[in-house]
Design a protein around this nucleic acid. Structure first.
Length: 482
RNA sequence: UCCUCGGUAGCUCAACGGUAGAGCAUUCGGCUGUUAACCGAAGGGUUGUAGGUUCGAAUCCUACCCGGGGAGCCA
């Protein structure tokens, strides 16, 4: 039903403003205006206080400041109301007392709807009763847009189902939990980059359009490349990484990868982000050490810099604090024996299922490294074990708490004849790999690397049930929108 | 692709063969310290779609559509 509300938005161009300038309403202007504070928004605002972010609020105790944000929720009690203001960096409870404010302003605030955009100016006050320890005593406010009650913000503070939330993913990101996950994802990505950058790796990004299967078996998304040919979305940058490692020694690529697997589980996305380092003059042990170091470093950074977010997520940080080197190591052979001892039906030569991975790590407080898998279940490029050529020098890092394989990698074949033989055994057309063979022709060296799935790692850090929450806009078997 | 569970108000759910209800959200009223605030009232429904069984279907049956969980495969 339409409401005859003069303040309701009519067009996108005419932003309704209930209270634009409190000086009109007779409030005293506060000194200390710094134009630098207003450049961020690109809008000249007639504010009388420096603009701050909620994450910085502790440094402004006792000062009058402005916070630009959105109404997260509001609690009213007659002549006093408590708007919760969200600004992307945190949430702060504001206090608006009717007796201290112009009537027009108090009424506008009291009746404000969820997710309305507004800029609040007031005095920061330490307050034990408030979450976060600080409150803002409202002095003035500018309402940028009042959300219409005829079409209210759909995500209310109560429970919602996953289907509804995923349909509103673009709005769901505004909630506390989702914002915390995205900040932890950011921390993980930054720490991954710092880890490699600090050790002399060079970021060299690999193409997303690729001409053929890198690994043969895995399903690829096909793309029409003009009318010329079919290309595929990359499922790994590894083959290109090997070329880059021969050029720069130590490299990594970091970007989205695509797998057209019809997997419908809590650990699968069709589009996910992967970091893949590759090192020249490296063997399996070097790869294992690099992987272990990466995991320890990133977990440490999350613990150090994202305490507040882990708390929002109610993550048991003790489980993360125990992630220290060295990680337990075992061979595939031993892992199969351990699993059989625990009642798994796995036989030698089979790959681990998710239940196997969970069983394997259930007694460990940190990830475990499993190496030397049967060559038959691994890709064509794995270097065979010198002591048993039926085994591939591959390694997987399996995270605890049921998060499964987060890293997979190993040492690559450097011998040209062996590589050619493996291509044929895997029914791959050697002519498509001419450039890859060149790497074995011109100064071949032992080398290796791995890939780490970012969303799986973030899911583990956050303790989320499903990895779909660990990327802003997940792409899954039956979900491609928004 | 297979197995399994589900689709009822904007949202979360109840009713399980006999008059479709509750909480939240929205609207109106009350409340100066609330913490997913609370109290009172109002509006809000072609029960996923199409057939079928029945005196009578949200409820039972069939097909389809949409989604959740899992398997295989993988990071």
């Amino acid at each position: 039903m339409e409401k005859s509300d003069a303040d309701a938005p009519r067009t996108a161009a005419s932003v309704p403003v209930v209270v634009r300038d409190q000086r009109v309403a007779g409030l005293p202007a506060t000194a200390g205006i710094d134009p630098a504070n207003f450049q961020e928004s690109g809008v000249l605002l007639t504010m009388s206080a420096p603009r701050v972010r909620i994450s910085d609020i502790a440094r402004h105790d006792g000062q009058t400041v402005s916070i630009a944000g959105w109404l997260y929720n509001i609690r009213r009690s007659g002549k006093i109301c408590f708007p919760l203001l969200r600004d992307g960096s945190g949430i702060i409870q504001c206090v608006a007392v009717k007796a201290n404010l112009p009537e027009e302003l108090f009424e506008a605030l009291k009746d404000l709807t969820q997710e309305s955009s507004l800029i609040v100016t007031g005095k920061v006050r330490a307050e034990a009763r408030a979450q976060g320890g600080f409150e803002l005593d409202v002095e003035s406010a500018e309402i940028i847009q009042r959300v219409s009650e005829a079409d209210p913000y759909p995500i209310t503070p109560k429970d919602h189902g996953i289907d509804f939330l995923m349909d509103h993913r673009h709005l769901w990101l505004r909630s506390k939990r989702q914002a915390a996950i995205l900040r932890i994802r950011h921390e993980v990505i930054k720490s991954i980059r710092d880890y490699f950058d600090n050790q002399g790796f060079t970021l060299v990004d690999t193409p997303i359009f690729t001409p053929a299967a890198c690994e043969g078996t895995t399903t690829l998304f096909e793309v029409n490349y003009f009318d010329e040919e079919k290309l595929y979305l990359t499922q790994s940058g590894q083959l290109y990484n090997e070329a880059n490692a021969m050029a720069l020694g130590k490299v990594y690529c970091f970007g989205p990868t695509f797998r057209a697997e019809k997997s419908k589980t809590r650990r699968h996305l069709t589009e996910f982000w992967m970091v893949e380092p590759e090192m020249a003059y490296a063997d399996l042990e070097d790869v294992k050490a690099l992987a272990e170091g990466l995991v320890v470093y990133c977990v440490g950074r999350v613990l150090e810099n994202r305490k507040a977010e882990l708390e929002v997520l109610e993550r048991d940080v003790k489980k993360l604090e125990s992630v220290k080197a060295p990680f337990p190591r075992m061979s595939y052979d031993d892992a199969v024996k351990v699993l059989q001892g625990k009642g798994s039906e796995i036989t030698w030569g089979g790959d681990f299922g998710n239940t196997d991975e969970t069983l394997l790590t259930q007694d460990s407080d940190r990830p475990i490294l499993v190496d030397r898998y049967p060559s038959e279940i691994k890709a064509f490029y794995f270097q065979p074990d010198a002591e048993n050529d039926k085994l591939a020098l591959g390694v997987d890092v399996i995270a605890p708490e049921g998060y499964g394989e987060i890293i997979g990698g190993g040492q690559r074949i450097h011998d040209p004849e062996l590589l050619l033989r493996r291509l044929k055994e895997h029914d791959l057309p050697p002519e498509a790999f001419n450039w890859y063979m060149d790497l074995r022709k011109y100064g071949t060296v032992p080398h290796g690397g791995f890939g780490m799935g970012v969303e799986r790692f973030v899911a583990w850090m956050c303790g989320t049930e499903h990895i779909r929450e660990c990327i802003a806009y997940p792409r899954m078997l039956y979900r491609t929108r928004p």
